[in-house]
């Protein structure tokens, strides 16, 4: 088809609505590049989002787009995919949408191994509503609803995904754009529920309150603190806490929901026909 990433984006709407220095723009174009690399047919591709800063990403895609209610993006996506398995479905969520209000849908979509790709930008807080803590905020996080730090630990999204049954799990950062492109393409190609977590800078809130750094310094932090599995495993627990484990963390071949359901459907049809005879 000869499409470039720009053919998947509604560039006429740029500049994007995100704050200056926000990493969502990097993630947005990476998703578009993965689409182009895989030559996805825009007419067969659906971008589903929920609510939040990253939840506005659907506006920028020239594919089919669906902007659902907060936390339910994966359930809408499940309906879309189960009704029409031919479609390629990408679900763009933040940590609030994906694993906090939508946590229940997340684990069950993983358990069912629905063949959709979740791209979760994790900025460790609710950016759109002004920087409150989420279920991925690390313990002690300063936010507008935790001025003295949080008294609850945060989820490790990739561990959660894997434990719940996701068959492809990866993590990357906005600094590692080449890796991001590669992991996104792998995840989209993967048959089954795939999750790519993109650690994100929220220079307006989380980074300012917690790392107390600028957007640029956040990028340096991503560069320095991202480690692969091999290096990560050699670290002490205290060292691990300050790092981001990145790369492909899990991949397995397992029949997806639709393949199994199609078989059950055949059996049901055959049974119904026998009964008629």
């Amino acid at each position: 088809m000869g499409l470039t990433y720009r053919d998947y984006l509604r560039e006429e709407l740029f500049p994007q609505m995100w704050c200056a220095g926000c990493s969502h723009g990097i993630s947005l174009t990476a998703v578009a590049r993965a689409m182009a690399a895989l030559k996805l047919d825009p007419a067969e591709t659906v971008v589903v989002t929920g609510i939040g800063c990253w939840g506005k990403a659907d506006d920028y895609f020239k594919t089919h787009s669906f902007h659902g209610t907060h936390g339910r993006a994966l359930s809408f996506a499940t309906g879309i995919k189960v009704a029409n398995p031919r479609l390629k479905v990408l679900v763009l969520m933040g940590d609030g949408d994906g694993v906090t209000i939508g946590g229940n849908h997340f684990i069950h979509t993983a358990r069912r191994n629905i063949d959709v790709t979740a791209v979760i930008t994790n900025n460790f807080n609710y950016g759109m509503t002004g920087g409150q803590y989420s279920s991925s905020s690390p313990e002690g996080t300063i936010s507008t609803t935790s001025l003295y730090g949080t008294a609850e630990p945060g989820f490790d999204i990739c561990e959660l995904a894997r434990a719940a049954g996701a068959t492809y799990v990866a993590r990357t950062t906005p600094y590692h754009v080449t890796q991001m492109d590669k992991l996104l393409a792998e995840a989209i190609q993967h048959k089954g529920f795939s999750v790519v977590e993109i650690i994100s800078s929220c220079p307006t809130f989380f980074a300012r309150y917690n790392y107390k750094v600028t957007a640029v310094e956040m990028m340096r932090l991503f560069k320095e603190r991202a480690v692969d599995r091999e290096r990560y495993d050699a670290l002490t627990a205290a060292e691990k806490a300050g790092c981001f484990l990145t790369g492909r963390l899990h991949r397995e071949e397992k029949e997806d929901f639709h393949t199994k359901y199609a078989r059950l459907q055949q059996q049901a049809k055959a049974r119904a026909e026998r009964e008629v005879v």
Binding site: V48, F66, G68, T69, G71, R72, L74, S75, F76, A77, T78, G79, I80, K81, V82, A83, N84, L87, N104, H105, H108, Y261, Q265, A268, K269, R271, A272
Partner: peptide, 25 residues
Amino acid sequence: ETGGRFIQMEDEIGGMAAVIGAAIG
């Protein structure tokens, strides 16, 4: 039996969302 699909969701909210997703599918 009739070529349709049924899915039992994890909760009522997801059930309603999946219905909407399927309808636009």
